[in-house]
Amino acid sequence: GIDPFTGEAIAKFNFNGDTQVEMSFRKGERITLLRQVDENWYEGRIPGTSRQGIFPITYVDVIKRPL
């Protein structure tokens, strides 16, 4: 089901994660935001896939912030 505490964002740019914990994505992908890790990073996942990880806040347009 849908978790009411998650947020939502759209990727503004392609992001290629450097490490296992970073999640790569392509511009235009819809991302579920799980939490804000710190002032620069979100943790999120791509709905319908097993992809999950952290990524820079500046790479996405936030539609709804996670609670």
Rank of each mutant, 00 (worst) to 15 (best):
I31E: 00
T6N: 13
D61M: 12
E29T: 05
N16Y: 14
I31T: 02
I2L: 13
K64L: 07
R45V: 09
W41Q: 06
L34D: 05
I63W: 06
P47F: 10
L33N: 04
T49P: 02
T6F: 13
Q20V: 14
D38V: 05
V37G: 01
E8K: 08
A11Q: 00
G1Q: 12
Q36W: 07
I63R: 06
F25K: 01
I57R: 09
I31R: 00
S50Y: 10
G53E: 00
V37H: 07
Q52G: 06
G7K: 09
G48W: 06
R51Q: 04
N14T: 11
V62R: 05
I57K: 11
A11C: 04
R26P: 02
F25D: 01
P56I: 03
K12N: 07
K12Q: 06
E43N: 04
V62A: 04
F15C: 02
D38I: 05
G1S: 12
S50H: 10
I46N: 01
E43T: 04
V60K: 00
T32A: 08
P66W: 03
G1T: 13
P4A: 14
G1P: 13
P4Y: 14
S24C: 07
K64Y: 08
Q52N: 07
E29P: 00
E8S: 11
K27Y: 06
N16R: 11
Q52R: 12
R26G: 07
L67A: 15
E8L: 15
V60N: 00
D18H: 15
T6E: 12
L33C: 07
G28W: 05
E29Y: 02
M23H: 01
K12I: 12
I54P: 02
N40I: 14
I54E: 03
W41L: 07
S24I: 03
V37C: 09
E39P: 10
R51W: 02
Y42I: 05
E39N: 10
F5M: 12
T32N: 07
F55S: 00
V60Y: 01
D38M: 07
K12C: 09
K64C: 14
F5R: 10
T32R: 08
T32S: 08
L33D: 04
V21L: 13
Y42A: 07
G53Y: 01
E22Y: 12
Q20M: 12
R30F: 12
E39T: 09
I63F: 07
D18Y: 14
Y42F: 12
R45G: 05
T49W: 02
I2D: 15
N16A: 10
D3N: 11
G7T: 10
V37Y: 08
I31L: 06
P66L: 07
V60P: 00
W41N: 07
I46A: 02
G17Y: 02
A11W: 01
G28I: 01
D3H: 12
I10S: 03
S50E: 12
P4S: 14
T49F: 03
I46F: 04
R26C: 14
L33V: 09
D38W: 08
D3M: 13
I31M: 04
A11E: 00
L33W: 02
G17D: 03
N14H: 10
L33T: 02
I31P: 00
L67D: 15
